[in-house]
Write a protein that binds this DNA or RNA. Structure first.
Lengths: 228, 228
DNA sequence: TCTTATATACTACCATGGTAGTATGGTAAT
DNA sequence: ATTACCATACTACCATGGTAGTATATAAGA
């Protein structure tokens, strides 16, 4: 029996989107454990839709490497691949460093204001120890920089890959993060953008995204069966 | 009536793959012009498969932004979006610059040999003016660098986006490229890797991938109806 | 006990019919 | 001539039954 949590189906969702979002949510939150065997039929009965939209959602998730489909054999939640995770981080680092350089050249006051507003909220969340909201604000912070440079494609690339990286973030407890350090980095990024100091912005962003390098081996030892 | 060229169906292809490859080939080569309206039924009859695999191929191509699906209205080959093309180039530039730096740190002799072998073939192709093969070799050259650094994910990101960029390359005649310059850049990249000179490799790669900036406005004026 | 054969219960893949929603062309009213 | 309406012909979306291929458990044979 699958340990799945069902999400609310929004009105404007197609069946396909509903299945996709449900599965993604459960996979990333590790409620569906890496290695789990699922089938079209099983999910279609669970979510009360036909097999066609389930199949289509499977294909999309397979492209994001959250599922592996073996024809005539079965479909499995992929194991976490540390090589893959590090490559994701590498890509994120270099795309965001290049983007923040662009931001130093040309960034609207409106966007800068959004960043400062966001940072203020982050400080409140740290005091309140509201780590879930902090995660969300952190995402928004980075999104504001990328979208402020009109780099929509970069964000969609990052988003698609992040699904994979986020499974590891879940394994670490929220309080394992050094949020004070992260916030001061955010602060430095803002001031570098305001000063149009490309080299500094690049360096801070580099350091900042290096924080995503986890104590991989210890995690792997602790949760051995979840890893490739 | 659609101006589609049918490709050979390989034995191990599923129907879905067959439809996907056929459509991709025709879209990138511009035999299916941007803006063309196609339907599940039409393609399924043309390629002699049912509507299900056609639909699944549509979804994949929609994710790559080669098709746009409007429910209950129709499916269309996307117009070429110059903003999107430039962003693709931007991503490629920064990922490959970061990768070639890695190559300078740690690259096998075997991979270096592959690069030199490839370059030798490129020179032959220039003499023979075999531009189709040259395109292919150019792809291989870059792939050798990326895969030599074990960056499989980076290559799949580049490949997926390149589909879009390549539609523009088709619009330019092959002999518009300054192949002599491109080959000398390849040569410089190899020697920089051999010398483990990261900064030089980075700089040459930057210059090299800036070559993909096209005379966009003139192209847009010439083929106005293909662009967004 | 171990190997081999076979029945059975799965799987994802594909074909096809029905459904709701959208575009379009013709007709009637103004 | 213009507008409003409606029938018709599309569309992609979804449901469902059938197919070939795979894994597994049981039984027959060595």
């Amino acid at each position: 029996m699958l340990n799945m949590v069902s999400i609310k189906r929004k009105n404007n969702y197609t069946s396909r989107d509903y299945v996709y979002e449900s599965l993604k949510e459960n996979i990333i939150s590790l409620k569906l454990k890496p290695g789990t065997n699922i089938s079209e039929k099983e999910i279609s009965e669970l979510l009360q839709v036909s097999r066609t939209p389930v199949r289509e959602a499977f294909l999309k998730l397979a492209q994001e490497e959250l599922l592996a489909i073996y024809p005539q054999r079965g479909t499995f939640v992929t194991l976490i691949d540390l090589q893959h995770v590090e490559e994701t981080r590498f890509i994120r680092e270099h795309l965001e460093r290049a983007t923040v350089r662009e931001a130093c050249k040309n960034f609207s006051n409106e966007s800068i204001f959004k960043l400062e507003e966001n940072l203020a909220l982050q400080k409140i969340c740290v005091e309140e120890k509201n780590y879930t909201k902090l995660f969300k604000l952190d995402e928004d912070f980075h999104y504001t920089i990328v979208s402020g440079c009109d780099k929509k494609l970069i964000w969609s690339v990052i988003q698609q890959m992040n699904n994979h990286l986020n499974r590891i973030r879940i394994l670490r407890l929220a309080d394992n993060f050094n949020w004070d350090l992260i916030l001061s980095q955010h602060e430095n990024i803002i001031s570098a953008i305001k000063d149009k100091n490309q080299d500094l912005a690049d360096r801070v962003m580099e350091e900042h995204l290096k924080e995503l390098i986890f104590e991989q081996e210890s995690l792997k030892k602790k949760y051995e069966n979840l890893f490739k």
